[in-house]
Amino acid sequence: MSITEIENEIVEEFSLFDDWMAKYEYLIDIGKSLPLIDAKYKTEDYLIKGCQSQVWLQADFKEGKIVYTADSDAIITKGIISLLVRVMSGHSPEEIMKADLSFIDRIGLKENLSPTRANGLVSMIKQMKLFALALSGKTE
């Protein structure tokens, strides 16, 4: 599936929830359920500092595709991160650089991307794209 297709899939999933509570409960659930990053990457080197919550991001490049793993100390942030990883991971650097990630707005979570420096998500997306930029044009 392309990035846009995965975004549309998430938007459709979220359309089943009728209020913010259900959306947040879902985010909290996926935030709780999986360890998103290998413990060895939860170090200063992989840390993206937010003003309030922290995000760790790591990227691998395999067969022309980037695979991201990430984590956060705040559970709702972690839920959103897992959506971002689902959308961005496994695509070519070129696709990732072009992704507009409009799904975040479309599922009504835009407030989580406000430029308050609060949760490190905006910086994380920037970092994901920087990885892609650095790897673009490379095949392995």
Binding site: W20, Y24, I28, Q52, S53, A74, I75, I76, E111, N119
Partner: peptide, 12 residues
């Protein structure tokens, strides 16, 4: 509980 998560829910 992370204060940030609490803040988001209280905001709602």
């Amino acid at each position: 509980i992370h204060p940030f998560d609490m803040g988001l829910i209280l905001d709602k």
